[in-house]
Amino acid sequence: MWDYTDKVNDHFKNPRNVGKIDHPDGTGEVGSLACGDALKLMFKLDDQGRIKEAKFQTFGCASAIASSSALTEMIIGKTLDEVEKITNKDIAEYLGGLPKQKVHCSVMGREALEAAIYNYRTGKKWDKAIEGDVVCHCFGVTDKEIERVARENNVQTLEELTNACKAGGGCGNCLPELQKIIDRVHGEQAASATPAKKPLTNLQRIHLIEDVIDREIRPALRQDGGDLELVDVDGNTVKVRFRGACSGCVVSAITLRDVVEARLKDNVSDEIRVEEVK
């Protein structure tokens, strides 16, 4: 059972400013059904450039609804320059705090606000890709977003990062990348010396491929109930078969490219190409 504050419960049970605005000045949509929460935020400005109306629609848990509701209260009457300074921590504090696993709900609020402002200023629909490269594919979180969340929430560990923005909360393949971002934010970029690549014999190459799969790829897949079987190595073509949860997973093609192939390229050779055998 979550230890929600009275204010979270109040905003969940009596959410403010629910609905849509006709002809809004800015609209921001973030999240998705698959991710488990989503927020659509709309605002309208008055003559002085202050937000005179803000409305939201949220698919999500109690704290997602409460964070959205709180956000609308926080931004009404303010200029865009003022609301741009709002961080997810401000939203959480406005609610008297959120359980640590629910911090990402406040981040979703801040993201929707950012998306709506972007929409107002450019007339375009905000897209994650605008602000960086997607690192966590399960939840579609970009490097820029992760850096920002890590900085604003003084994130120290992977668990804190996942709580704050969901990154790494799915298959876990991106955890090493996330750790690097955390380290970078702390100014301690790990000087990871890449092993010198020298020509390998066929047997050495196969052993190395097996080793990388065992050490780097399989544990990540297993965290999500998946697995991988090495079927064949033909020159630079590595044939694999997904097993468990990975087989039939909607993002298995992404896993193949961004995890399996990427890891083998990093560790074995840039020439490696991975093919899935069904």
Binding site: G36, D37, G60, C61, S63, A64, P99, Q101, K102, F139, T162, K166, G169, G170, D224, G225, A245
Partner: peptide
Amino acid sequence: SACASGSLEPSHVLR
């Protein structure tokens, strides 16, 4: 639901 358990993934049974 994922949100209720504190994990981000919904029930392993339903998945």
